[in-house]
Amino acid sequence: MTETTVRGAAILGAGTPAPEFTLRSTPDETLSLHTLRGRPVILVFYPADWSPVCGDELALFNELVSDFREYGAELVGISVDGVWCHAAFARSRNLHFPLLADFEPKGAVSRLYGAYRDEEGTSARALFLVDGEGIIRWSYLSPVGVNPGADGILNALESLVGGSAASQPARAGREMPAGGVEVRP
């Protein structure tokens, strides 16, 4: 098991089985991680709906939903906001992927992944790539104010799945935003 610590927060690292969870995705639907088994799953933990950086981060990931699908991957956002808040936010931003409410007990799933910030009472800004067998293959904890971008997750997805059908341009370096922590095997 790998763990990386940044200012007290420790996120689960590559090689760790992704903790199972069931969370509400809408007022009357839930999503369980195991139902996505067989496909790569990208978990995007973020502090809050409506805050400017998250908006940018989710807007960027939203533009890439079709690219992620070309790798067969599912994208899921998770924060401590409630389902109604998520619904309004997703509608306002035209989001094409589910937002899960880690709302009751608050932050329980975020804590399981080490992606919870006690002082703020929110999820951390963290990315996880879970493979089809439910094992975390890559994770990244970003400074809370920094949009991590999507190059890290795309590179990780590409190494997991191999080249996609998408005509990808030359690979970027694996460098990540300053201050972030990438966890690889």
């Binding site: 940018d56 981060e57 807007a59 960027l60 533009e63 890439l64 690219d67 920094v146 949009n147 991590p148 971008g149 999507a150 190059d151 795309l154 998408a166 990808q168 341009p169 030359a170 690979r171 970027a172 460098e175 990540m176 935003p177």
Partner: peptide, 11 residues
């Protein structure tokens, strides 16, 4: 757009 994503454009 894709080259931007690969270059680390985040907004």
């Amino acid at each position: 757009f894709r080259s931007g994503v690969r270059s680390g454009v985040n907004g």
